[in-house]
Design a protein around this nucleic acid. Sequence first.
DNA 1: CCAAAAGTGTTTCAGCTACACCCATGA
DNA 2: TCATGGGTGTAGCTGAAACACTTTTGG
Lengths: 230, 230
Amino acid sequence: MTNIQNIRVAVDAIVFGYQNNQLYVLLIQQKFGTEELYWALPGGLVQNDEALQDAVKRELKEETNVTVNYFEQLFTFGDDIKRDPRNRVISVAYFALVDPSKLTIKADSDADHAQWFKIKEVPPLAFDHNNILKKAIERLKAKLTYEPVGFDLLAKEFLFSELENLYCTILEKEIDRRNFRKKILSFEIIEETDQYAPSKSGRPAKLFKFNKLKYNKLTKKGFHFEIKFA
Amino acid sequence: MTNIQNIRVAVDAIVFGYQNNQLYVLLIQQKFGTEELYWALPGGLVQNDEALQDAVKRELKEETNVTVNYFEQLFTFGDDIKRDPRNRVISVAYFALVDPSKLTIKADSDADHAQWFKIKEVPPLAFDHNNILKKAIERLKAKLTYEPVGFDLLAKEFLFSELENLYCTILEKEIDRRNFRKKILSFEIIEETDQYAPSKSGRPAKLFKFNKLKYNKLTKKGFHFEIKFA
DNA sequence: CCAAAAGTGTTTCAGCTACACCCATGA
DNA sequence: TCATGGGTGTAGCTGAAACACTTTTGG
């Protein structure tokens, strides 16, 4: 029991994107053992002099060429000793939300092995990554209802219908358009722009944007974002 | 950058107790360097073949002689590379709630260096442990409002006034007795017993108990515990 | 003028808030 | 009989839920 500790520390990134009523997650192709190819969450070992946060950002950049400036710690997976059959590895998982402009991966050294997957079409992943992803989706769903994170998945300027569909899609619920709009507008954290979206059919729709500064101010005063559904 | 990873993995336990309108946390006295004594959260290095959960339980038992069967993972502290000035150590923090019967520490080999501290009288702790504790208190406050965890801090049979005071004390808020009682009772997850508490003065009070089975059943049906305050 | 999506108000109902008096016991 | 804490009901208000028609554009 007094032998030297031999546990490796890794980080994994769950990066979510959203486009066309679909939630996406960013995966990489990984060689596992000698032959089989698996899809996996981006991630890797932490360096000795590196903050955990920095490690995720670095690994993500290296493996997918995507940069993200805010990661939230999700959970540390380390109860299953054989989660990586080669060594004892614990993994600190982080998740991030990116806007649609990042959904096209810029070609790069390693990035050609990276790909966005629709959340409903994620294949069996390496290690316990399906499990990690599941936990991340739960967290995302929860956060949508008590923090204004939906905006992080949309372009800077967005349509109300996009926001509404995002909530419907991710939470897998039906929402009353009028009540949803009323509720969101009542928070006074999003603003109309004088822009209209190009519309193929139907009445043109106003573009809105999220006022993060105002949200932060309100939060300090005790405001609490919350969306509930039946 | 291809040198061997040299990061140690530790676990720390934040164990909360409650008695006489006071929230307590369990600390141990730790030798730091050669001379100075510091109070610290119970914890230590994870063994190679040991689940993180098991590591916390073991360390807690060894250091304080307290056993806890449910720990919830709080957060992993590993962004500050010098949080332990001796080595790079990341710590996975877990927290637990224990009932008042555990507030008297049974003497044991190491347990004589363990002590319960009122939350308002916690001294400066080793490493970043004050910071960890702060985060744990925040989490506890949050959980009180959306999960029925208050009962874990009380004896099996408790008075309504105890539950009420627990909420007031920990959340540092005033509560209307009538509304609180109505709200809690409306959930139908606690039951009267036919016992009365020995009363020194005033009308004797009924003892209640939490029906965890019923709570679990309700939860499966979509019930959601929630207490809000003005 | 038709199809398609955007925009908008009102009524109803449930649950939260605020609030004050009587009850059972021991000293 | 008094002091102490336990136990209880109601009225008003606020916010959620349910619900359908009009507007603007392109084809």
